[in-house]
């Protein structure tokens, strides 16, 4: 019998927990809580800082965009596209069969109502970042007259919906609302 065995035998009170068991568990519990309390701040510090989170909204004046033009505004480090779509582009966006879309969404569902409660069909506002690996698609390009991502060849239509290529979803619509007929607030 080794020394530790003797020690254990001495402490073994018919399987009943001893004072020593209690001390072991209490010590482990305190150590685990302490480690957790230290680990959490060390992990959480890597998240977005408060000033990054606070810089969350911008206003865009839509009247600056002419028909057929696109405005690029930097928002949260990513470009927001504001496109004044031509009648042909709106028509193309509206007449697509939902079955043809990898990520089905109507054009109307990708717009926000103006103060009068109607849709400004001409203004498409979206985050101009390819949903594949975050490149910035080129406008008025690709097989669907919308956007084309040069990185891995994703084609988007005139509503910013994915039509062909490796991107899994449509380009994101940011949270925004109309403050007046021509001014929107993103974020």
């Amino acid at each position: 019998m080794s020394e530790t065995d003797q020690l254990d035998a001495h402490l073994d009170t018919d399987g009943e927990p001893t004072r020593r068991d209690f001390i072991y568990i209490a010590t482990a519990a305190v150590a685990a809580t302490g480690a957790g309390a230290l680990a959490w701040p060390l992990v959480a510090q890597m998240g977005a800082a408060n000033d990054t989170l606070a810089a969350g909204s911008i206003e865009i004046d839509l009247s600056k965009v002419e028909e057929g033009q696109q405005l690029k505004v930097l928002y949260r480090g990513k470009p927001v596209f504001v496109r004044y779509r031509t009648a042909k582009e709106i028509m193309e966006a509206d007449t697509v069969e939902m079955d043809d879309l990898p990520d089905p969404e109507t054009d109307d569902a990708r717009l926000v109502t103006n103060p009068q409660g109607a849709l400004n069909k001409q203004y498409l506002v979206m985050v101009g970042v390819c949903t594949h690996f975050g490149c910035i698609p080129v406008g008025e390009a690709g097989d669907f007259d919308g956007w084309y991502c040069p990185c891995h060849g994703s084609h988007y239509d005139t509503s910013g919906r994915i039509r062909k290529g490796p991107a899994p979803t449509n380009m994101e619509i940011p949270k925004y609302k109309y403050l007046s007929d021509t001014i929107i607030k993103v974020g």
Binding site: M46, A48, A49, T52, R76, G77
Partner: peptide, 17 residues
């Protein structure tokens, strides 16, 4: 991804870490 970048996109916090 946001946790790794320290924000919404690759930016100063990303470069520093």
């Amino acid at each position: 991804q946001q946790w790794l970048l320290g924000g919404y996109s690759v930016d100063n916090p990303t470069l520093q870490r």
